[in-house]
Amino acid sequence: MKKILAKAYLWLVLVILYAPIVFIAVFSFTEAKSMGNWTGFSMNLYKNLFTGSMQNSAGLLSAVENTLLIALVASLVATLLGTVAAIGIFNMKGRKKQTMQFLLLFVFLHISQGYLTVILAHITFCTPYVVLNVLPKLSQMNPNVYEAALDLGATPFQALRKVLVPALRPGMISGFILSFTMSLDDFAVTFFTRGTIGLDTLSTFIYTDARKGGLTPELKPLMTIIFLVILAVLLVINVRSTKTSKVQ
């Protein structure tokens, strides 16, 4: 009974969480411009999206490219910077450590043109996620292993690559994924740091579009496709990881 109630609760929350996404997906198969308006089944929005026969298709395409590029660069740099910083912070003591962690908190509030400023700003708010994910892995690790590697003749770089990085990898990966997600989804930071050169990510594209009045209808199929791709990737990863755990 308890189990059924628990399951029902989870599903209820999930249904509410997914309602708008399903809504977008359903209305991507009709031609009407506004979202709640069903004018019969049609694949035309998908066709327009792929053939580029829609208004501002170049703008949308470059927005998608920018979003991915910025998210990738920012989360890669953040992972690198954050991991090295986490190792440093972990080895600090007392007051210095506290100051550093206090600074980390303040990054969340940072309000500050072009690619460089957007990427820098994204690195700024992504790095704490990496640091916070790598730190727990460091405290789980036996500190002597690194020293042992050095004693056995490894250069510091070898010890880093062969001992530290493998031990920290799970934290680095979850930090990277979190950074990537936050960067993809960010609107406010991009909006303020992109300047006036007309750099658009998906978020700012959608914002300008919605404020102008009508949302470009082709965004609905685009979002549906993005969602399905991610769902597929998730399922593949899951199937593979259950397979490998069975083998082990």
């Binding site: 996404i21 997600t181 609107f187 998906l202 959608i206 914002y207 919605a210 979002m223 969602f227």
Partner: peptide, 8 residues
């Protein structure tokens, strides 16, 4: 759901 743009 976070992977589908928040504004959308």
């Amino acid at each position: 759901p976070m992977w589908v743009n928040a504004l959308m």
